[in-house]
Simulated scan of single mutants.
Amino acid sequence: MRWDAFLEQVQERGEYGTPQEAERAACTVLALLGAHLVGVVRAELAARLPETFAVILLNPLQATEPLSPERFLRATAAWIEGATEKTAAWDVSAVLSVAADAAGEELTQRILLQLPPGYDLLFGRPEHT
């Protein structure tokens, strides 16, 4: 997926006023997500993202343990200046739903298998519970 197309979709879904807001959310969420994915799944997702976001996903923020969806939202809020858990939920859903579209259903399903229960809603895929 092209950089501008990815950002446009994140901006639209997140209802951000500027591309910079969408980019900030995407960078933070993908850096946190990268800490929770391993091996081929992370590499395959990176291959379907714009190069800059792929690098972020492949060089993630460090996580000492898998985060539940609730803790993932709190971590996102902590990394985005001025964010709350409510706005972080919006950020995470906007970015992860676009990433899921870029990944396709089969890869998204494998991504969800690597994550704790409950991430399906963050990816906009509640049917995979």
Rank of each mutant, 00 (worst) to 15 (best):
Q9R: 07
E51V: 13
A77Y: 02
C27I: 15
L107H: 07
R125Q: 15
T84W: 07
T64E: 15
L113I: 10
E51M: 11
A89M: 11
T108G: 13
G17F: 01
S97K: 08
F123Y: 12
G118S: 14
D120S: 13
G124N: 14
Q9G: 00
T52E: 13
R2N: 05
D91W: 02
T129H: 14
R2P: 07
I111Y: 10
Q109M: 05
G39D: 12
R13T: 00
R2T: 11
L113C: 14
L45K: 08
E106K: 02
I56R: 08
T76W: 05
P66I: 05
W3T: 07
P60F: 03
W79I: 07
Y16W: 00
W3L: 06
A22V: 07
V95A: 00
V95S: 02
V40I: 09
V29Y: 03
L115W: 11
D120N: 15
R48H: 10
L67G: 12
R125Y: 14
N59Y: 06
Y119W: 12
L45C: 09
L112P: 13
P116D: 06
E12H: 09
T108H: 05
E8Y: 02
W90Q: 10
Y119F: 15
E15F: 10
G14S: 04
L73F: 09
T84Y: 11
F123L: 13
E51S: 14
G82C: 03
A54N: 04
D91P: 04
Q9M: 08
V41F: 08
D91E: 09
E105D: 14
G118V: 13
T76Y: 07
A63L: 04
G118W: 01
D4I: 05
G17L: 10
L113V: 14
D101S: 14
A78L: 08
L107F: 08
L113R: 09
V92K: 02
D4K: 02
L113N: 12
R13F: 06
A35P: 06
L115G: 13
G39K: 11
A102L: 02
C27G: 11
V55H: 12
A103K: 03
A78P: 00
A102I: 00
W79P: 10
A54R: 01
E105A: 12
E127A: 14
L58C: 04
T76D: 00
E23I: 12
E23R: 15
T18E: 08
A77V: 03
D120L: 07
R24A: 09
A99G: 05
L33I: 12
A78N: 05
A25Q: 06
T28V: 15
L112F: 09
A83T: 06
I111G: 08
I56C: 02
E106M: 05
G17W: 12
A75K: 03
L96P: 05
E15A: 12
Q9A: 12
W79Y: 15
Q114W: 10
L30I: 13
P69H: 01
E105W: 11
L58R: 06
A99N: 06
L30K: 04
V10S: 01
A88Y: 00
